[in-house]
Amino acid sequence: ELELEEVDLYRMNSQDKLGLTVCYRTDDEDDIGIYISEIDPNSIAAKDGRIREGDRIIQINGIEVQNREEAVALLTSEENKNFSLLIARP
């Protein structure tokens, strides 16, 4: 049973970094989820404190993420200042 949490992050300008590194968990081929492998200690996500390494990203801004490229594109989008992440953890 996964616990879901919605985390809203806000950046003042497009130079601010959310600070999330995303990856696949390669140990299970059936698991195509996108996971947070690293959080930059000086980033918006780290200061917010709710997202943890190992969390799975389900949605970004209401869009279900299917692959790492999509997640990276959404997280690094210059147009977005508000990010709503739906994350899951066991």
Rank of each mutant, 00 (worst) to 15 (best):
E1P: 03
E1G: 03
E1L: 08
E1H: 04
E1M: 12
E1W: 02
L2Y: 04
L2M: 15
L2P: 10
E3T: 06
E3I: 15
E3S: 09
E3N: 15
E3F: 15
E3W: 04
E3K: 10
L4C: 05
L4T: 15
L4A: 13
L4K: 10
L4R: 13
L4H: 06
L4P: 11
L4E: 07
E5L: 14
E6W: 01
E6Y: 03
E6P: 15
E6M: 05
E6L: 04
E6Q: 04
E6N: 12
V7M: 04
V7C: 00
V7A: 02
V7F: 11
D8W: 03
D8I: 03
L9V: 04
L9P: 00
L9W: 01
L9E: 00
Y10S: 15
Y10Q: 11
R11Q: 05
R11N: 01
M12W: 13
M12L: 12
M12R: 12
S14G: 12
S14D: 13
S14V: 12
S14H: 14
Q15A: 08
Q15H: 09
Q15G: 10
D16F: 05
D16E: 05
D16W: 03
K17I: 10
K17D: 09
L18K: 00
L18H: 01
G19T: 00
G19N: 01
G19S: 01
L20V: 11
L20G: 00
L20R: 00
L20C: 03
T21W: 05
T21R: 09
V22N: 02
V22D: 01
V22K: 01
C23Q: 08
C23F: 07
C23D: 12
Y24D: 14
Y24T: 11
Y24R: 06
Y24E: 15
Y24M: 13
R25W: 04
R25T: 14
T26L: 07
T26S: 14
D27G: 15
D27H: 07
D27P: 04
D28F: 10
D28I: 08
D28C: 11
E29A: 12
D30I: 08
D30S: 09
D30T: 09
D31A: 15
D31E: 14
D31K: 11
I32G: 15
G33T: 14
G33S: 10
G33N: 15
I34G: 04
I34E: 01
I34V: 12
I34F: 08
Y35F: 15
Y35A: 07
Y35I: 12
Y35H: 14
I36F: 03
I36W: 00
S37A: 13
E38N: 15
E38S: 08
E38L: 12
I39S: 01
I39H: 00
D40Y: 06
P41Q: 15
P41V: 10
P41Y: 14
N42W: 05
N42T: 09
N42E: 12
N42L: 08
N42P: 02
S43I: 01
S43H: 07
I44N: 05
I44C: 12
I44R: 03
A45Q: 01
A45P: 02
A46G: 10
A46W: 11
A46F: 09
K47V: 05
K47R: 10
K47L: 12
D48Y: 02
G49E: 05
G49V: 04
R50I: 02
R50Y: 02
R50N: 04
R50K: 09
R50Q: 12
I51H: 00
I51M: 09
I51D: 00
I51S: 03
I51R: 00
I51Y: 00
R52H: 09
R52Y: 10
R52T: 07
R52P: 00
E53S: 09
E53M: 05
E53Y: 06
G54W: 05
G54C: 03
G54M: 05
D55C: 05
D55L: 02
D55G: 01
D55H: 07
D55T: 03
R56L: 12
R56Y: 11
R56E: 09
R56G: 08
I57A: 01
I57C: 08
I57T: 01
I57V: 09
I57S: 00
I58H: 14
Q59W: 03
I60A: 02
N61T: 01
N61D: 14
N61H: 02
N61E: 03
N61K: 01
N61Y: 01
N61A: 02
N61Q: 08
G62S: 12
I63T: 13
I63L: 09
I63E: 10
I63P: 00
E64Q: 05
E64F: 01
E64D: 10
E64Y: 04
V65W: 05
V65I: 10
Q66S: 15
Q66G: 15
Q66V: 15
N67W: 14
N67Q: 14
R68P: 06
R68C: 15
E69Q: 11
E69M: 13
E70N: 04
E70P: 03
A71L: 04
A71H: 04
A71M: 04
A71E: 03
A71D: 05
V72T: 11
V72N: 13
V72I: 08
V72E: 13
A73S: 10
A73I: 07
A73D: 11
L74E: 11
L74Y: 15
L74R: 12
L75M: 08
L75A: 02
T76N: 11
T76M: 14
T76S: 07
T76H: 04
T76D: 08
T76V: 07
S77W: 03
S77G: 10
E78W: 05
E78K: 09
E78R: 08
E78F: 13
E79Q: 07
E79K: 13
N80M: 14
N80F: 11
N80Y: 05
K81G: 15
K81S: 08
K81Y: 04
K81N: 06
K81E: 14
N82K: 10
N82Q: 06
N82V: 10
N82F: 10
F83S: 04
S84Y: 05
S84A: 06
S84C: 05
S84I: 09
L85A: 02
L85Q: 00
L86K: 15
I87M: 10
I87C: 13
I87H: 01
I87T: 05
I87A: 04
I87R: 06
A88V: 03
A88N: 15
A88E: 15
A88W: 05
A88H: 08
R89E: 01
R89G: 03
R89C: 03
P90G: 09
P90V: 03
P90M: 14
P90D: 05
P90Y: 03
